[in-house]
């Protein structure tokens, strides 16, 4: 606690650096994986190829991936871009499968009904497919968020500032409190991100969340639900 009190500025600065490293991969990963996931479902042969390639990319361990980045990007080894791009690759590799599964989970009859009502393919995607696959996408995004926040600590190995600095510095200076601070701060960021995602989910997908409300409705107005889908 004493260590934390005298180093609050450092910790705060690292927290901001850590958020700066982990937010872009989560957002870009999400945006990129939806079209790729759609593509994976659209054509039969593309699904296998896309999922296998991304599976192999995900197999590349994180520290080597950081070290490979300068070769592909031409960036200096110590550049934060290496970490952001590597984490984005992981985010995409994780998220595409979920996106493909989520989009595939939308009931075919629903899609046919939308087409029958006159939706064009483009409108149907935005107004029917995407919102209905929302809950699955959200669950995938939560996994991506947690693993990205945790992996960003490893940036310190190639000299990129993040909360991982508290681990290596704490080790070199033999201060366990510093390491514990790093772990707790990482977990706090992960939890805050998770809560934010859940909150965004509640706002954008109000129909998907509370089970309680549905049960309550059933109890008070059984007649309404009786003939409905159970």
């Amino acid at each position: 606690m004493k260590w934390l009190e005298s180093n609050l500025d450092l910790v705060w600065e690292l927290v901001l650096a850590h958020i700066g490293l982990s937010v872009p991969p989560i957002l870009i990963g999400f945006l990129v994986s939806i079209p790729i996931g759609w593509l994976a479902n659209r054509y039969r042969p593309s699904r296998g190829v896309i999922l296998v390639v991304l599976g192999l990319l995900y197999t590349v361990p994180s520290i080597p991936l950081f070290i490979f980045m300068p070769i592909f990007l031409g960036t200096p080894l110590l550049s934060p871009v290496n970490v952001v791009v590597a984490l984005t690759i992981y985010a995409v590799a994780l998220m595409v499968r979920t996106a493909a599964d989520g989009l595939a989970s939308v009931d075919d009859d629903t899609l046919l009904a939308a087409s029958a009502m006159g939706y064009s393919g483009w409108q149907r995607f935005w107004r029917v497919e995407l919102p209905l696959s929302g809950p699955v996408l959200l669950s995938g995004l939560r996994v991506v968020s947690a693993s990205t926040v945790s992996l960003a600590t490893l940036g310190v190995i190639i000299g990129v500032q993040s909360l991982g600095y508290l681990f290596t510095n704490g080790f070199q200076r033999n201060i366990p409190a510093e390491v514990v601070t790093g772990i707790v701060a990482t977990l706090v960021i992960a939890v805050v991100f998770d809560l934010l995602l859940v909150l965004i989910g509640r706002l954008l997908l109000p129909w998907s969340t509370p089970d309680r409300r549905r049960k309550a409705t059933r109890r008070t107005t059984p007649a309404l639900v009786a003939g409905g889908v159970s």
Partner: peptide, 18 residues
């Protein structure tokens, strides 16, 4: 299982190292 995903392994390793 979900909670462990966010645990940074380098930090845990160093803590055990102490």
């Amino acid at each position: 299982s979900g909670g462990l995903r966010a645990l940074p392994s380098l930090g845990v390793l160093i803590l055990f190292g102490f």
